[in-house]
């Protein structure tokens, strides 16, 4: 999908939103990806779309070097929000191509060669994207979802609640989406973590969640479900 025909306001809005937490279209430096999207624009975005405008000015300052920037040009529709999964595959693939001459030997113990992992992750990501796309095409009947508020209680006041939140958010399951969280004081300086999530009923059970969260046994003493609503 990408930003589509970048001349319309709708797509400029998408670009603006996409660039809110990114400096460039791809990665951390200006690349051909920026050039492609830049050239698809008819001019500078309006001032109220300040993320897009900031990026436009930044890329514009590289105008004389456009042809020498790194990266490979792709069609403009390849970039953007929904293309994130597929574009993640390209840098890893390029890495592989770059250093295939020196460390091609088989690493029996798989110690520190994370290229393979990256490639694997990228492969999984693209496969998942393809599956998702296929699932979308089929248009299944509306999926039953529930919104759950969980309470995660630590062992004592010395438990690092930020770490707890990080661990909890690190749980990834198909059909599970984490939402807002806050710390709620329990007393004696102890805080419990209240975190909301949305789950697809068929895919994620509360038992699975509880099992996974209490698996962080160094941090988590117990876990409760504070609220459970069908959407």
């Amino acid at each position: 999908m990408g930003f589509g025909d970048s001349k319309t306001t709708v797509c400029l809005n998408a670009l603006n939103e996409y660039l809110a937490d990114r400096s460039y279209i791809e990665g951390y430096t200006v690349s051909q990806a920026d050039v492609v999207v830049f050239e698809a624009l008819s001019g500078a975005p309006p001032a109220e779309l300040y993320n897009a405008l900031r990026w436009y000015n930044q890329v514009n300052s590289y105008k004389s070097q456009f042809s020498s920037l790194p990266g490979v040009k792709k069609d403009v529709s390849e970039y953007g929000p929904s293309a994130a999964a597929t574009s993640a595959a390209t840098p890893a693939a390029q890495n592989d191509a770059d250093d295939d001459d020196d460390d091609d030997d088989v690493d029996l113990f798989g110690s520190d060669d994370d290229d393979d992992e990256e490639a694997l992750a990228a492969m999984q990501a693209s496969r998942k994207a393809a599956e998702d796309a296929a699932a979308k095409k089929k248009k299944p009947p509306p999926i039953a979802k529930s919104s759950i508020v969980l309470e995660v209680k630590p062992w004592d006041d010395e438990t690092d609640m930020n770490e707890v939140e990080k661990l909890v958010r690190s749980i990834e399951m198909d059909g599970l989406l984490w939402g807002a969280s806050k710390l709620v004081p329990v007393g004696y300086g102890i805080n419990k973590l209240q975190i909301s999530c949305v789950v697809v009923d068929d895919k994620v059970g509360t038992d699975d969640l509880e099992e996974k969260i209490t698996a962080f046994e160094d941090f988590v003493q117990s876990m409760d479900i504070a609220a459970f609503n069908k959407i």
Partner: peptide, 24 residues
């Protein structure tokens, strides 16, 4: 680094810049 994810997102422009500079 001491901010929660929610706060980091609140300071999104700072986070974007910080992430960009630290990746150089």
């Amino acid at each position: 680094s001491l901010l929660t994810f929610q706060e980091k997102e609140k300071f999104m422009h700072l986070s974007r810049w910080c992430d960009n500079v630290q990746s150089i």
